[in-house]
Design a protein around this nucleic acid. Sequence first.
DNA 1: GTCTATAGTTAGATAGAC
DNA 2: GTCTATCTAACTATAGAC
Lengths: 217, 217
Amino acid sequence: MTTKEKILNEALILFSEKGYSDVFVGDIATAVGIKAPSLYKHFKGKQEIFDSCVEKFFERMTQIRNELFLPDTPQSDVSYETADTEKITEFAIGLFMFYWKDDIASRFRRMLMIERYRNPELNRIYEDFFVNGAVEYEEKVFAELISAGVIKKEDPHIIALRFYSPIYYLLQKYDMYPDKEEEAKGELISSIREFCQTYKGKDSRNDGIIKNDKEND
Amino acid sequence: MTTKEKILNEALILFSEKGYSDVFVGDIATAVGIKAPSLYKHFKGKQEIFDSCVEKFFERMTQIRNELFLPDTPQSDVSYETADTEKITEFAIGLFMFYWKDDIASRFRRMLMIERYRNPELNRIYEDFFVNGAVEYEEKVFAELISAGVIKKEDPHIIALRFYSPIYYLLQKYDMYPDKEEEAKGELISSIREFCQTYKGKDSRNDGIIKNDKEND
DNA sequence: GTCTATAGTTAGATAGAC
DNA sequence: GTCTATCTAACTATAGAC
């Protein structure tokens, strides 16, 4: 890793813990193992370091969207037709774990939560990736699942909201406790299981799966 | 309002917008209409102003808990037996609007969201009131509603999680848009209606209300 | 590309007049 | 209880040696 990369790496860690203004150029330098003035050979200043972190985040998100959300691997041929409780759960866990643990996404998300109230541009980014944007994306997914008959014919927006909000809540709950992975996953799985019981099938609320699905444990 | 109260009021507004370290003593003074050194006749320093805001928040929360959560008014005699979709919706809206719009609670909540990553004590307060604590309280409510037969016999923790997480998500979504009250309430009501359809009654999923409830709009 | 030394700036807080 | 003037400390950034 080059010094420039090290700087960005350490800077993002610090920004995610303290926000922009409480991180001092000297802190970043110390974390990298150099002195503050040396940073200015790599970046024009603190703001440029920050801007590069933003850029790095966008690159990572573009990358993961191609991997996780738009898989063009052979498996994608099975499409929505075969999506079931297990697949929906897998998708939820994948999304949750990425937002929670990915080095870039999780740190940048925390930084955005600190900065979004004072910086409208960062608030927009936060909303696009972690609030409205996330729900809107899932809305499209559920609209397709409804067409495929996998999910009940109800308002896709409300379905997406009820799917995503526990993920969002649990992210906040476990953000400070990266070691509680099993507990977090357990809660998420229970929540998604209930979600699937409510919404799967064309009108399958009284199809008898309500009580028996618990055997999956 | 005394100058001391004015200081606390303006300080909380600024802290909720910028967090602790980006608010300068001079900013608070200007907002109040005095000069910075004058503040020191009322408070020892910036930290004491902040601590007083914390105290004010605790007072407000104690007050509202007695009003909203533990109503000892005559109406409470009807108890959980008569709780229905409408009452649960009313409770959800009351909780949401308080967290969203109450001058003290909403500002303090925003400040906590900014500060919780760098201050463990503030993170604990945030969790107690807006994350774990909120769900734990509702867990107790739903446990009682289950006993009363109003809510289906399922894990009260998951029920509480699925009840509260949309409230929490919508709070983040509309935090910057206090004027979008009707839109926010609409989304919340749709979400809670679906919640009630899923959980109300001992096993009342196929009681025919599923499609027709939309007439309420 | 790293360092030491230092300039320039600004925030928190105090002194003392009114 | 408010002000002006001022101190001290801390941070960003630059200059210039190596």
